[in-house]
Amino acid sequence: MASQNKQQQTMDDLTSQFLKHYVENQRRIYGLIRSLVPRCQDADDVMQETTAVMWQKFREFQPGTNFSAWGNRIAHLLVLKHYQKNKNLPSFKPEILDEITKDAHILNKQMTHRLDALLSCLKKLSSDDRELVKWRYEQNTSVKEISQKQNIASHTIYRSLGRIHNCLLDCIKRHMAVETSL
């Protein structure tokens, strides 16, 4: 009985630790996967598998080391596996995937700062642009649906979103450059 309680306690500790790390880092891991597998459905499949493998292998994770880096390594391998299984998918060469993983890891480290910067930059958008961002990202409405509701061609919406993205990216860069110089 005591052994069962101990086992349960260990399991509880393990799951608690896993959740704590996972909630803190899932954005970063998902970010990497989306960079390597741009298409949403595919990326979600890889993320799901990554989550399962991370959980299965969590006993091998050394507390105190970088959970995000650990998760990224697993995600990277599962992306490779995903591309091996789905050879018809447009994909990067393995060496490019390696490079993207490294670069994405560096960018992901700044995720918190980027989020802060993004929040600030969103406020600077015009009301029309903010509305579009709200539909697309907050309400997760597809471009096709927006196009139908607003009676605007999809490519026009993509062009607008591209322009907004460009503005946001410039703004975030400026924001972060100012922060660095402080």
């Binding site: 954005r27 670069d103 994405a104 995720m111 993004l118 697309r136 990202y137 907050e138 993205h165």
Partner: peptide, 19 residues
Amino acid sequence: RQFYLEFMSVNVCLHQLND
């Protein structure tokens, strides 16, 4: 590629910022 990664980084933030 660097530009693409920056784009992805912003897009991931946008998609996950609110929910």
